[in-house]
Design a protein around this nucleic acid. Structure first.
Lengths: 223, 223
DNA sequence: TAGATTGTTAATCGATTAACAATC
DNA sequence: TAGATTGTTAATCGATTAACAATC
């Protein structure tokens, strides 16, 4: 009785997937794809783990989340595994995205073609600079900020990529969310405040750099 | 007796710092700096935690790693705290770095000025393309691959930033390590193999995207 | 003094790793 | 069959959160 909510949609709401698992899955995918497996050929957790410097049990646990089942002794059918990971991550049905802030980083992301294989299609850039608006970046239009809302609505865009300076990130985010965006991939070094239910994924170079420089300094001091 | 090694340099080798803590410290720093505290004015964990959406106890624990001590009731002296974090991360003594691969992303990183405040000074770019070599990116020279080794040796460069395509990342990494680099900030989507003691920090957009797209798909399905 | 906040020790939580039966 | 590998249950490890004494 007390957990009737949970019971009701037990199948819809499986145990939550650990973020570390989600973060490792693309690595498996990339490895598998790069190996060009023939249809029917198999691959074991041991092999994957060794190639990526992980524990095989960890790979096995991670793969289990995608719902794939392997066979004792032989492992997983490689092409099935690739499909299972892609389906699980939702990378087989692409979402359109709009990128805000066509500076150096914005241009780099606009012209990177790899995202489409990862479920993300950045359809256009947005910038308030007139000069920038005249650019086409890798065939992608750059539109003025004033036209962003209506484009989001018209194309039912669900993802905003934010590469504006820190000072304007919150305003841009608010605008995008108001227009209907459900997820924000944030490259600006600020904490964005969003309404309940809106997803924010921060890309935090400073955090990585902190880990790198601390380790390096410890290592240099030790020697 | 059995742990004599540990005892000998007990002060040199404090408990290891959790990576999650290291990754949060830059966020505190950025917040504190943005607030322009007057000398002597204080700030409490509660305030920091609230601004960043964290638990105050977590902030307190994180700050303790930097060695700073606060005062009950008042908190930490803000400017002391800023200095403590910067010193702890080593962001007060900058390391020179060399960036390999002056494509869109490489150019974006080369022209970003913020890294210097984070202990990283990218002194030049390296690219094998003749046309690219003629570019100066934001006043930074782009040198041919053949000159990279000697530059690393001459300037005692310890950090390589790798933004080359996946297919050449390992070769570039090997070369940089052979020339004396101790840490690699890797933006290429490959697992780099390095000798014992060399630090690799992977910047993994695909991993972030996996978290984002899974959350978004779950959220869209739910509604 | 009273109340807020630190610093520290203990409890909880979640992820990783280990163990092992099942099985192809 | 024998051996390798999966899938699952249990143990360990580490990070987060809670509790609380110390103190300004």
């Amino acid at each position: 009785m007390e957990n009737s909510e949970k019971d009701m949609n037990a199948e819809e709401q499986p145990r939550a997937i650990p973020a570390p698992t989600l973060r490792r899955l693309p690595g498996y995918l990339q490895l598998l794809k790069s190996r060009g497996y023939a249809p029917g050929s198999t691959v074991s957790c041991t092999v994957i783990a060794q190639a990526l410097g992980l524990q095989s049990i960890q790979v096995r646990k991670d793969l289990a989340y995608t719902g794939i089942t392997g066979r004792p002794k032989t492992g997983y059918v490689a092409l099935e595994l690739i499909k299972a990971i892609e389906d699980f991550l939702g990378w087989n049905n692409t979402h359109d995205a709009l990128l805000f802030g066509v500076g150096q980083l914005g241009r780099a992301l606009l012209s990177y073609n790899g995202f489409r294989a990862q479920g993300l299609d950045i359809v256009a850039g947005v910038d308030c600079d007139n000069a920038v608006q005249r650019l086409d970046v890798h065939g992608k239009k750059v539109i003025p900020l004033s036209k962003a809302s209506s484009l989001i609505r018209r194309l039912h865009i669900k993802i905003a990529v934010i590469t504006v300076p820190a000072s304007s990130a919150q305003a841009v985010c608010d605008m995008a969310v108001a227009a209907g965006v459900k997820a924000v991939w944030n490259f600006a070094p600020v904490q964005l405040n969003v309404p309940e239910g809106i997803i924010v994924q921060n890309e935090n170079l400073a955090a990585s750099l902190a880990v790198l420089s601390k380790k390096l300094n410890l290592s240099l001091k030790a020697s």
